[in-house]
Amino acid sequence: MSSVISFENVSFAYNHINVLEDISLEVEAEEFFGIIGPNAAGKSTLLKLLLGMLEADKGSIQVLGRTPVEASHLIGYVPQAPSFPRDFPIKVEDVVLLGCQNSARYFGGFSSEERKIAHEALQVVEIDKLARLPIAELSGGQVQRMLIARALAGQPEILVLDEPTANIDVQAEENIFSLLKQYNKHMTIIVVSHDIAFISSYVNRVGCLNTRLVCHETESISGKTMEELYGAPIKMIHHEH
């Protein structure tokens, strides 16, 4: 397997405060990689470096053999919270169409080919019936699905999701992760989540981040690992539904 994402001794500081220190990470093609860690551990900063939205102070980052900025159009990004006003006058399908920006047609309106891709992405996340609805009328879970569809419409090689299930209920969370698992057959997926118990059943490997990064195979995550990461005793409760 080839490495699609490579961080080599990367450090980053905001106003001289180290947020990430000496991060080294290799993510293989078609891997489902989870990143967990407490608040202010640097999870979102790591994603921003990967997406080329920030530049590392030290070290080097390669994405698909290019710099993060050069590769950004090959990455589908699902942000933690929508970075647009919810009352913006736009329909669901037009938001998803904006994900098709890296197509050959750069100027003018959207082509029928792009509309087809957007419709397929909406079908995948099962909100194609909401395509003509204004975004103001969507629930939190539907917005999350729309954001995933927008990322998929760009036909990315890597899908990056920042807390994709933060604002939705457990059933919707399960549905979204099952969907991602299907996509993982031909796409590398990086997901940031606070919910280790949940993501561990889907991801191949977990990176525990708290300024520094330690990677584990999912089977090897223990209560002790979690205590070290969060700096407080963690109770592991096994239960069945």
């Binding site: 939205m53 942000p79 970075s83 913006f88 037009d94 904006l98 890296n102 750069y106 003018g108």
Partner: peptide
């Protein structure tokens, strides 16, 4: 049209899409 729509709707995502 599409550049104006993307940049007025969601600057962060528009930037990521080049």
């Amino acid at each position: 049209y599409r550049q104006f729509l993307a940049a007025t709707f969601d600057e962060e995502f528009a930037r990521l899409r080049g």
